[in-house]
Computed example of a mutant assay.
Amino acid sequence: MTTLNSKYCNLLTTGEGLVVDIHTERTRWGQSLLACHIKALHGLRDKAEYLDYDARVVGKQAERLIRKAQNAVNAGCDVLIAFKAGVRWLSIIKYDDDHPRAGEIDIVQKARLLFVHWMDVDGVRVYTAEASAVRDGNAEDALTGNDSSDAATPKPAAAADVTALAASA
């Protein structure tokens, strides 16, 4: 039997997905947490399907990047990330009165967003994690991420705001 060196046992999911909503979520213990809705891609790239996650952002590096992407998401830009998430679970929700599906009950897949490997805004790479951080799993080392050298000039103004990620994250 192997002894684990971490105090956590993680079941991890990695993938790519569109960030379509960034919001604050309240836990049942009353804590406010940053969360985002990710439409994770799967299947053939030219016929990809989506799997929806409502992800609590718990990694420090991921939290900084998702906060920086808020303006781009609000402006309707396509924000695509490569991510690492853990601890998936299902949650039963009842839609609020102000929701178009008010009163309906639904099941939502939840996860914990741990790490962002890279981020594109409208097809322009605005952030790439340092290779050593990805290899070693040390998210704090990734905060010095860089702009991709082949990135074109960002199209929308919101993408330009996110381009500052590498310098400030």
Rank of each mutant, 00 (worst) to 15 (best):
I22F: 04
K47G: 07
L34S: 06
A158S: 15
Y50S: 11
V162A: 15
A48G: 13
A151D: 04
R101C: 14
T163H: 11
R28L: 12
L143I: 14
A160V: 14
Y127K: 02
D122C: 12
N146I: 10
L44Y: 08
D54V: 09
W118H: 12
N10Y: 14
L12W: 02
K155P: 12
S91G: 08
L114H: 01
D52T: 15
R26T: 14
T153K: 12
A55S: 13
Y95H: 15
L90C: 04
L143V: 09
P156Q: 05
A69G: 05
G86W: 00
V19N: 00
R56T: 15
T27S: 12
M119L: 15
G86P: 00
W29N: 13
G86N: 04
D141Q: 11
N71M: 07
W89Q: 05
N10S: 14
A151R: 05
I93N: 08
A85K: 00
S149G: 11
M119K: 02
G103K: 02
Q61W: 08
A158M: 03
D46L: 11
G137A: 01
W118T: 08
S148T: 06
A82K: 11
L80C: 09
T153Y: 07
A167R: 11
T3M: 15
Y127E: 00
R26N: 13
A85F: 00
G30E: 02
A40C: 07
W118Y: 12
A164K: 11
L113R: 03
T24Q: 09
N10G: 10
L44Q: 13
L65K: 07
D150W: 09
D161P: 01
D46A: 10
T24N: 11
T3N: 14
Y127A: 03
R135V: 14
V126Q: 01
I107H: 02
D147E: 11
S148E: 10
R88E: 06
A159Q: 01
D120N: 15
A151L: 01
V19D: 01
T14Y: 10
M1W: 06
L18I: 08
E16L: 06
V121R: 04
A131Y: 00
K39Q: 14
N5T: 06
I107P: 03
A62F: 01
M119W: 03
V20N: 10
A152R: 13
M119H: 03
R112P: 00
A55P: 04
K7L: 08
D97A: 15
A133H: 00
I38E: 06
G145E: 01
D98V: 08
V73K: 01
A157V: 07
N138C: 06
A166F: 02
L18M: 08
N10T: 09
K94F: 01
D96W: 04
D98S: 11
A82G: 14
L80A: 11
E63L: 07
T14C: 06
F83K: 02
S6I: 00
K155C: 06
L51F: 15
R67V: 09
R28S: 08
H99Y: 04
Y53A: 01
C9N: 13
G43T: 05
